[in-house]
Design a protein around this nucleic acid. Structure first.
Lengths: 316, 316
DNA sequence: CTGTTAGCGCATTCAG
DNA sequence: CTGAATGCGCTAACAG
C-alpha cells in the first residue's frame, strides 16, 4: 500500500509550493507555462490523483449529479440516462445513480443521501404519487423528468402529442376503426393523458371509442385485446411498446394479422417481431440530454426554473 | 439559501460538544442514551445533513462503490446491477455508476475518476480486450465480472455449463439434430467458450455439429439461421436470448415452428412471443449479489482475492 | 461518558 | 506569477 500522495508531495517533487500545484489542478491561468508543464509531468509520473473529497471540502464543487430513476431495467429510462450521461460526462460531472423503485420512502432516502454527498444537482424521474416537497427546498439544483411541478424544473414527454401522432398516422392510411389499450388512469401521464388524447382524437374524427386500460405489461395487454376487438377493428393504438407487444401477440394468435398496432417507445424489437406494427418515439434520449443541459445551466446560474416538453419524433 | 449547518451548529443547539455530535453520527456506543436522543432530536428538527466529503476527509470511509458497466441498456447487466445494488445499499454503500461502452480508454478514465473519488471498492464488468493492468494496483478493492484474471477477484458465468445445460435439456426430449448460433470467437466467453461447449456436447453425443457465429444482435442471428438449417433440424441452441429471438423469428417466417430454440438470459419476452423456445438463466442477479458481497468482504479484509463461478439455474 | 485538540487534502485569500 | 497562511466539516485520538 504505497502511501497516498498529496499535493504537498508533488509540490516537493516539482520544486514548487503546494498552491501552485493546486492551481494547475484547477486550471488557473495564473501559472507560468513552464511551471505548469513541470508540475503536470510530476503528476503524471507519480500517478497522483487528487482527492475529490478534499477538493469539495476545500471550496470546489463536487461535480457530481445525482440521478434517481425508477427502475434500472426500464428501457425507456435507460435511453434517457444515456442522454443524461453523454451531457454530464462532457461537462465533467459524474453520476451517482440510485434506484427508487417507485417507492416514495426509498426515493426520499435517496434524496437525503444525495444531499449529504453535496451533489451539485439532481435529476429525478417522477412517478405517480411521487412526493416532490422534499425537492422544492433544493429548488434550482433539481430537474424532474416526466412530472410537472411549479417550483422545480421539469422536462416532460408530450404524452398527448404522442398518441395524437399515432392516431393521425393510422387515419392517414384510411383506417377508421381504431381501438386503444392503455394503463390505469391513476397514472396521470402514461395513463390519463394518453387515454384522453385517444378519446379526443376519436371525437374529432367521429370514431366510436373502444378502449381498455390495465397494467403496464404485455400479459395485461394480451388479455385485454379481445375486449376491444370487433370484426371491424383495423388498428389498435397502445400506450407503450410493451403493451403493443402483448396486443400484437394476441392478434397473431387469433390470425388477425391485418390489424395495425402502434406502440410508444421506438423499441427495435417490436417491428422486428411483429411486421404490422409501428412505434412512436417520445424522444427519450433527447429528454435526457435536455434535462442534463437544463440542470447544468441552473447549477451555473445561467437559467432559472423552467418547464420543457419534449417534441415527438416520428418513428425512424 | 439557508446557510449550510455543521456539527458545530447542532452541537450548540443541543448544548453539547461537537465530538459528541460526531459520535452519534458514527453510531459510537460511548454516548449516554439521553444525550444521544437529544442530539438526534436537534439533527432531525434542524434538517442537518452531515457532509460526506468532510466525513471522508476526516478519516471515515466514503461508503461508495464504483461500478463500471458496459452498457446501461443491456438487460443482462441490468439484472446484475440490481443484485449489486440490493447488497450494497443494505450495507450502507452508494453506487457511482459509469458506462464504459466497451471502450478501453473510456474505462481507464472511469477508473481514474473512481480512484480520485476515494471509492471503497470497484466492480468492473469485463469485456473482450478489457485492460485489467490498471485494476491490479487496486488489488483487493476490485471485483471483476465475467472475465478471469489472477490478481483480481472475479465472478464469472459458467459459460460452458450454460450451453451444456441447454444441450442436455434438448437431448432429453429425444432430439438429435441440434444446430448452434453464436457470436464471434474473438469474444472469449460468450463466443469461444459457449461454442466449444456446443462442440464438446456434439462429440459426446455423436451429433454432427452445424453452427455459425456472427454478431450479438437478432438481425445477425436471423440471417445466419438458414445456414444451419436442414430438413432434419430439430433444435437450435443460441448463445443468447437476443440471438434466439432472431432465429425464432426466421423460423416463424419459414413456417418451421417444429424447431425448438434455446437462448441464454431468461428473458421473459422470448417464450411469450415464441412458444417453442426456452432460455437458460445464467444467474445474473445472483452474480451481482455475489460480486457485491465478495467486494464488501474484501474491503473489510475478511477475504482475499477469490474467483467464483456462478452456478447455472434452469429456466423457471 | 464527554469536551478539547489535531489533522485529513485541497482551494483560496493575501502578500510578495 | 508564486509561496505562505487559513479554513472547509468532520473523525479520531487524547485528556478529563
Amino acid at each position: 500500500m504505497t502511501k497516498t500522495l498529496t499535493i504537498i508531495d508533488i509540490a516537493k517533487l516539482a520544486g514548487v509550493g503546494k498552491s501552485t500545484v493546486s492551481r494547475v489542478l484547477t486550471d488557473d491561468p495564473n501559472v507560468k507555462d513552464s511551471t505548469r508543464k513541470k508540475v503536470q509531468q510530476v503528476i503524471k509520473k507519480s500517478g497522483f490523483v487528487p482527492s475529490k473529497s478534499a477538493q469539495v471540502l476545500g471550496g470546489g464543487n463536487a461535480k457530481v449529479i445525482g440521478i434517481i430513476l425508477s427502475r434500472l431495467d426500464s428501457s425507456s429510462e435507460n435511453k434517457v440516462i444515456s442522454g443524461i450521461l453523454d451531457v454530464i460526462y462532457a461537462a465533467g460531472y459524474d453520476a451517482l445513480i440510485m434506484e427508487g423503485l417507485f417507492d416514495v420512502k426509498k426515493t426520499k432516502e435517496h434524496l437525503a443521501v444525495l444531499k449529504k454527498r453535496n451533489v451539485d444537482g439532481i435529476i429525478l424521474f417522477g412517478f405517480t404519487d411521487c412526493d416532490l416537497t422534499e425537492t422544492e427546498k433544493l429548488a434550482h439544483k433539481v430537474v424532474i423528468i416526466a412530472v410537472d411541478n411549479d417550483t422545480v424544473s421539469s422536462v416532460g414527454y408530450d404524452n398527448y402529442g404522442i398518441i395524437e401522432k399515432a392516431m393521425t398516422h393510422i387515419q392517414e392510411q384510411g383506417k377508421q376503426h381504431i381501438s386503444y389499450i392503455g394503463v390505469d388512469v391513476k397514472d396521470k401521464t402514461t395513463g390519463l393523458i394518453r387515454l384522453n388524447a385517444y378519446l379526443d382524437c376519436c371525437k374529432l374524427a367521429g370514431i366510436t371509442p373502444n378502449f381498455q386500460t390495465g397494467l403496464l405489461n404485455y400479459k395485461s395487454a394480451y388479455d385485454l385485446t379481445d375486449m376491444v376487438l370487433t370484426s371491424e377493428t383495423e388498428a389498435i393504438v397502445c400506450a407503450s411498446d410493451t403493451l403493443a407487444m402483448g396486443v400484437a401477440k394476441r392478434l397473431q394468435t387469433l390470425g388477425r394479422n391485418d390489424i395495425l398496432v402502434s406502440g410508444v417507445g421506438n423499441t427495435e424489437l417490436l417491428p422486428f417481431v411483429f411486421p404490422n406494427t409501428f412505434s412512436i418515439d417520445p424522444g427519450y434520449y433527447s429528454v435526457g440530454k435536455t434535462a442534463a443541459n437544463l440542470l447544468i445551466q441552473q447549477i451555473r446560474g445561467d437559467r432559472t426554473v423552467t418547464h420543457l416538453t419534449q417534441k415527438v419524433s416520428f418513428p425512424n
